[in-house]
Design a protein around this nucleic acid. Structure first.
Lengths: 199, 199, 199, 199
DNA sequence: TATGAATGAGCATTCATTCAT
DNA sequence: TATGAATGAATGCTCATTCAT
């Protein structure tokens, strides 16, 4: 099933079309996007969807994994950049932009998380930890904030903006700014609860 | 139809059981909670659900309205309280506690919002505006933050905490603290986008 | 249940209201008229409907019986009238007028026919037999037509007219005229099949 | 959607089974026939019904269309036949035979009539008009009878016969004969109401 | 291998009928 | 006695998944 043998050229093309279509459909309708709709958008048969991914959940997981991997890759470049605080902010900006296109919060529906997705997610968590540690050491963010905090807060700007009745396409930037201000050392008040452990 | 004639004793009891069951089920599964499940949780027949609420949407709207009304009522008391900043923070605390029990974000699915719910929501928005104005005038929060911002941010602590794999029951307090720090004047950076207009 | 003890005054009034409402509702929606609708039209509770008639079928049967009885009563007067042919035609006219208000064909749905209805129907059949015999003997209708034929044909004008897209309120008279011409001796061709036996 | 691409062999077989089952079920229970029952009679799954016809109404419309088309095709042959009066009578005979198997009167429930059905129906109406005109010009039927009259009367023999408690399979022939006698010029009395306009 | 036809569990909703008030 | 609240079987329809072509 999930052997990593290289796909035939047309199969690879179909897989790409399928993932793109699925990303679009999941972005629009969340988990309620129908397999039939996704197949139609991809211009392939419904059966072919299931040839590539044994369940709809697996398809969603693959979409998520791709997005997480892309974000992680972008983050890897930032982790070496000059200003640690700016690097973290830039990473969160990229994350929000990515989420603008496709909400990752479906991930909470536990059944979605298969092993390969978990691996990608962990890799991203580790990267975020590094970005946060660097920023903290540089004094760009408050001392009592952890990588796990940032992981959880990452989706908030997108979600908050999405609540607006007719959100402008950049509204999330407003809330990212507010939340990032909350992460800065200036004027920080003590946090009342211990940070969570991820994983 | 919607006359507010007092219900028979048993009907009132069923209505309460139903709303409690619905609150629980919607909290767990969002709009995907099934009417059959809700009826079973309430220990009543499926048909009885529809006697009380003509559609599932109406049931959800009623659940939401109850919660919004309770929150608004609590807020009305705070709006006259001593410290404007503390009052706003207390309101947001109550909101997050309430959301802990039942996520309001389903409200985004537009079809849910019937007229009575819209009225309740507007009343709450007006209250929040007053709380925010007072806090702003008192210098407890930054000048560039509006009531609409707070409305949108209100659910964020709950959502952020819910992303954690095994969130402690008070984890949201941590993120409310961070976000509220982001609303304080100290160390505020300029906001890049105009605030949204609600309604 | 169906004891013939005289009803209390208000119960009798309710029964009359109920029958009128039911006649109206059945005329509009046939057997699909809902008990709730009928009760509402009558201004009484749904439970009261079932106190008067144990099932919806029984209610329909009662409506039918009333109409059949009224028609039979009118026919009794005609059976002694001067011109036998005119009397039969007049009876069929009354029948069609009555059907204009409420289609009797639901009667075909066998479950509807309870005993009391059957009695009323038989009484009407006997009357029709007499009207037909008289008309036949007077040469007003052809010799090979029986009372049973007329019983079956009785509803046809109303049905035929009802098929028209926007039937005028008197269209059935056109088809009654045609069918009655078919019953006249003039130009009659032999009938290919034996007449049915009623009951 | 409605492309007329040839169906796969098994799909075509299922479609035929489905239409036959639907014809039977609609004949027995009218529009109240349940989709589940139809599917069971056809020996296919409920979902398959909806794959072939998006709604129950569409299924009924298809059944009707098939019958109307078959009848129209048969009529086309008659319209060129020798004796115009015999041709019309033969057509009405075919129509009644066809109705014996499946009552067309459900067509009155307006929602059933989709566009393709309307086209088929209009085609049949035009054909009937031609048959009637020819018969009228030949003096086989009275001068004051129109195509629309015949359209409306077409179902009457079947309906009338169906009212009989245990109708013989040929009873309708008796009433077709009577009604057709009513259409003949011999002994015709003037018609009291204008003919309807179809469509 | 790709397709889309078939499947059936699941869903929201209706309604005749029963029963507590 | 009259009411209308409660019930649950039944209905039309959807959709992830399986399987014959």
């Amino acid at each position: 099933m999930t052997t990593d043998r290289p796909l035939r050229a047309d199969a690879a093309r179909n897989r790409a079309l399928l993932l793109a279509a699925a990303e679009e459909a999941f972005a629009e309708h969340g988990m309620d996007a129908s397999v039939a709709d996704i197949a139609a958008r991809a211009g392939i048969g419904k059966g072919t969807v299931f040839r590539h991914f044994p369940t709809k959940d697996d398809l969603l997981a693959a979409v998520m994994r791709d997005r997480i991997d892309a974000l992680t890759a972008a983050g890897e470049r930032l982790v070496e950049a000059g200003d640690p605080g700016a690097a973290l902010l830039e990473f969160l900006t990229l994350a929000a932009e990515s989420q603008q296109r496709n909400d990752m919060s479906v991930l909470q529906e536990a059944h979605v998380v298969n092993e390969r997705l978990a691996v990608a997610r962990t890799r991203m968590f580790v990267l975020i930890e590094r970005l946060v540690d660097r920023a903290r050491r540089a004094g760009a963010i408050r001392a009592d904030v952890t990588g796990a905090d940032v992981v959880l807060l990452m989706c908030a700007p997108g979600h908050v903006a999405a609540f607006a009745p007719r959100p402008g396409p950049d509204l999330w930037r407003r809330y990212l700014a507010i939340i990032f201000d909350g992460l800065r050392p200036a004027g920080a008040t003590p946090l009342p609860v211990d940070p969570p452990r991820m994983g």
